[in-house]
């Protein structure tokens, strides 16, 4: 089963996205910030896709994306940034950190699942 890791400091966002993804048939791992997500990667969690917020406490999403790329087996794993942030400079920063795409909140279920199909064609 395809596993998606959700990283967001908003419990509402985690619940909402987890519900949408679970119903679509994905297995979901959650983390409240970048550091927690990185810890999970370090403990052997191997998601097929990561969807991360940008502005989070302890470790922001862009730093997390940069660090996640260094984790074993995560070099080519798609990382989507899902954020309220719309600043172009932040996008460029995320792209340089190894993010695969940028989605501005709110994202409808169909839009989100459509993007996932694009980055995970076989899933």
């Amino acid at each position: 089963m395809t596993t998606v890791m959700l990283v967001d400091d908003s419990a509402t966002m985690l619940m909402s996205l987890k519900s949408i993804l679970t119903k679509a048939g994905y297995s979901v791992e959650t983390a409240g910030h970048g550091k927690e997500a990185l810890d999970k990667l370090g403990k052997g969690v191997k998601p097929n896709l990561i969807i991360s917020d940008v502005n989070m406490p302890q470790m922001d999403g862009i730093t997390f994306a940069r660090e996640a790329r260094k984790a074993p087996g995560m070099r080519f794993t798609p990382i989507l940034m899902l954020t309220t942030e719309s600043e172009q400079s932040k996008r460029a920063e995320a792209k340089a950190a190894g993010a695969t795409g940028w989605l501005v909140k709110p994202v409808g279920p169909d839009q989100l699942l459509g993007v996932i199909k694009q980055v995970l064609p076989g899933a």
Partner: peptide, 20 residues
């Protein structure tokens, strides 16, 4: 109904935006 509730769950993202 399931599609509607899924859509409604998606709309709850407003809270995160409002919070920020």
């Amino acid at each position: 109904l399931i599609a509607e509730t899924t859509g409604a769950v998606g709309h709850v993202q407003f809270q995160d935006i409002s919070r920020q």
